[in-house]
Design a protein around this nucleic acid. Structure first.
Lengths: 167, 167
DNA sequence: TTGGCTGCAAAGGGTTTGCATCGCA
DNA sequence: TGCGATGCAAACCCTTTGCAGCCAA
């Protein structure tokens, strides 16, 4: 639960994440449980990118009420991705999750200085992607794009710092 | 050393990979050694995507001449990336390497059926990327894009299979 | 009541690291 | 000749898995 993304508004959706997950579970003959409900609630309470470890740190510790073992956290995160509630991708070797249900598709700018993830949408990117794929007779099902660089704030700070250095 | 990419021709470069690496080592006060030379030779002998494990399988076993320990393979691969000889990215949890020095920048189509990686170039993609980044005051240093889907061959095979199934 | 879910602990896989030795520059 | 590189084995990190007991449907 590190970086809160800029931009991107929530979409209108018919079901709450809980309801949507319930539906998914029923369709697969699986069960709604206390840990699962608790995790969905916690995760959708804020819009942020996070990995399993960061999530676990925000949860009750062993012995406290609503404790969830990390095995269950890992198992649940996979369910949530299958169910379309979450998205995940690899970043610096760790698996990063983000809310998917109720949010529009997008890509990320990744600031290598402050490690912030900034979301952005680009219809043109999709068009370009499909065009390139078509040239190879490739049927696209999706993509993952990460743009690395330095964000606005970090550029400013660096500039400020340099000016100070000169004084 | 699994999939040999389609398309993409080699660029003209002034130095051989060996020479280029030599230069890099000298600039950092590091040393050219037998294992390093051997690895550069092996890797640049073919143009393919590979991970550490696949590379190790192609190398001499323990006891044979030119054996290189896997610790050294891992250490060397990182050097090669630093030196600009190789590129690496994450795919299905493993680190995949590809030749960088002497090859033009590109992105990948990834067939989820046969796991083949197809390289493609798109200037428009770069333009679109930079445009999107500019809107956020983001200074781009690079990007990584992976398009998932089904390649031409797998589409054909599947169609053929379906026809057979109907007979 | 039963089959799916949980917590626990142990295993797993890919990669890194500490250390004594080796070998380039 | 000194410092960087190597091989070995152990450590590491993140994640998955086997199993006995638990609980939702």
């Amino acid at each position: 639960m590190s970086s809160v993304p800029e931009s991107l508004e929530r979409l209108e959706v018919a079901l709450t994440p809980q309801e949507r997950f319930e539906e998914y579970l029923q369709s697969k003959g699986q069960r709604q449980t206390k840990p699962r409900k608790f995790l969905v609630e916690k995760i959708f309470a804020q819009h942020a990118h996070f990995d399993a470890d960061e999530l676990i740190e925000k949860l009750p510790r062993k012995g406290e009420p609503n404790y969830v073992s990390s095995a269950t956290v890992y198992r649940s995160l996979r369910e949530f991705v299958d169910a379309g509630l979450l998205n995940c991708f690899q970043l610096d070797g760790r698996t990063v999750y983000e809310l998917d249900y109720g949010y529009p598709p997008h890509d990320h700018l990744y600031c290598t200085r402050c490690r912030k993830l900034i979301e952005f949408r680009s219809e043109e990117l999709i068009a370009t992607r499909d065009e390139a794929a078509a040239k190879h007779g490739f049927r696209v099902s999706g993509h993952r794009m990460l743009v690395s660089g330095v964000c606005r704030e970090c550029s400013k700070n660096r500039r400020k710092k340099r000016k100070q250095d000169l004084v």
